[in-house]
Simulated scan of single mutants.
Amino acid sequence: MIAALQFALADIPVPMVYATHRIIRDCNAEFAGLFGYRREELVDTSFSRLYPAIADFVRTGDMWRHHLPGGAVYFDERIMAGADGKRFWCRVNGRSRDLSDPFAAALYCFEPMSRPLTQTTLKLTGRQRQILTLVAQGKTSTLIAEEVGLSRRTVEAHRLRLARSVGVANSAELVAWFLSQPSA
């Protein structure tokens, strides 16, 4: 018989956080350091302080609420903000164990991304950045619509406006543009 391994968050070498109802209940030093805080400054505070704007916090919560059923792993890519106000891209993986309330108790892993944050991407609205990151993940308009709670036609309109705003002809060129942006 194999004994179950147990680790505390402090033992895990990647940015990890445990939250209840989007309140940080515990995190490791790697998570706190990613955002420029000490662990003690984050425990028992809202995740909202780590977002560039409250609208981003609300939009992300709506998306996760619909796609994080108990036991499932869900991920997205988003812009977060550090203690100094500097913004950066993160990939976030999360798992909830409560089938009826995905935010009741969840564990999240934050992975900083090397994707540059440019003046052009900063000028996009939160919804446009959300659509753009989902397009970059290779998701279709139908899948994106289901994920973010919009109609397929609305998603297609967002994609078209994004492509026009950066001067590309289609989604493939939009993804290539997005992934090749130089640092700001």
Rank of each mutant, 00 (worst) to 15 (best):
L117R: 08
T142Q: 13
Y18G: 09
P15C: 00
L99S: 13
E147Y: 09
V168G: 03
L160C: 15
S141E: 11
H21K: 05
R115V: 13
I144T: 01
M113D: 06
V148H: 02
A176D: 14
T154H: 05
F110A: 14
S165K: 12
L9H: 03
E41K: 02
N170K: 02
R87G: 04
G94E: 01
A184R: 11
L150V: 13
H67G: 07
Y37S: 01
A32C: 03
L5M: 12
T140W: 08
G126K: 02
T125G: 13
G167C: 08
M113V: 08
H66L: 09
P13I: 02
S171W: 09
A4T: 15
E30S: 13
I144W: 04
T118Q: 06
V17F: 04
E146T: 00
W177S: 00
Q128R: 05
V155G: 01
E111M: 10
G36W: 03
A4S: 14
A106V: 13
L160W: 14
F110Y: 15
K86V: 12
T118D: 03
V17K: 01
A106I: 11
T121L: 08
R59F: 05
I54C: 10
Q128N: 05
S141A: 15
T133G: 04
L124Q: 05
R159T: 05
F103D: 07
A55V: 02
I2Q: 12
L99Q: 15
N170E: 02
M63K: 11
I2E: 09
L107K: 12
A3L: 06
I131H: 08
I2P: 07
H67F: 05
S171K: 12
K123G: 11
S96P: 12
A105N: 09
E111Q: 15
S180M: 03
P13F: 05
C27N: 03
G61T: 10
R91P: 06
V58G: 04
L162C: 00
D11S: 15
R38Y: 00
V14Q: 14
